[in-house]
């Protein structure tokens, strides 16, 4: 087993473990912290996939931005910071959902193993960030401008909803 494989297994274990801890922890605040750990793990997976820029973006937006947003929302709803007394953290259908998730995972596993993926292991050449920047200005100009409208709508909508 090579060093990269060991690194992969370690990172995956941390990511999946954090995600499991997230869905099972009683306090929402602690769940959010586990979620951040899972995000960092995903960023490490991006690095293994030679997508350094995406890893940095993942850290900046998910672990630095969305996590703070969620933690702030938790602070604004004080009752959820403690476990709900007398109520389980799960709803009544959780066993059914767990079964469905496990079943889905088994199916996806089989699919991933059995399919003969047309793997093409060329080296990534060129300055990736430069190519992305040029891509946004040429081939992907429309998605680039549309996302700005999406962000505008999200900003305005969230402000309107959040303040009365």
């Amino acid at each position: 087993m090579s060093i990269t494989q060991v690194a992969f297994i370690l990172i995956s274990a941390i990511t999946l473990g954090s995600a499991l801890a997230m869905v099972t922890s009683r306090t929402v605040f602690v769940a959010a912290l586990w979620m951040v750990a899972a995000f960092v793990g995903v960023a490490a997976l991006y690095i293994l996939l030679e997508a350094g820029f995406l890893a940095a973006i993942q850290l900046l937006i998910y672990a630095g931005g969305i996590a703070v947003l969620i933690l702030f929302a938790i602070m604004l709803t004080p009752r959820v910071m403690q476990p709900m007394e007398g109520l389980s953290r799960f709803n009544d259908q959780w066993m059914f959902v767990a079964a469905v998730s496990a079943f889905l995972f088994a199916g996806l596993w089989a699919l991933a193993i059995r399919t003969d993926w047309p793997v093409n292991l060329q080296r990534v050449t060129g300055d990736n960030i430069f190519l992305l920047g040029r891509g946004f200005m040429t081939q992907y100009l429309l998605p680039f401008e549309v996302t700005s409208i999406l962000l505008l709508v999200a900003l305005v909508g969230a402000i309107v909803i959040a303040r009365d």
Binding site: I57, I66, L69, F72, I129, G133, M137, L151, L155, A162
Partner: peptide, 24 residues
């Protein structure tokens, strides 16, 4: 507090597009 975090996240996402643009 939430509003500030919200505006921050929106502008944070913007950097994902602006930094490659600045480099290119």
């Amino acid at each position: 507090y939430y509003i500030y975090a919200l505006v921050f996240v929106i502008f944070d996402v913007e950097t994902a597009f602006l930094y490659p643009w600045a480099v290119a």
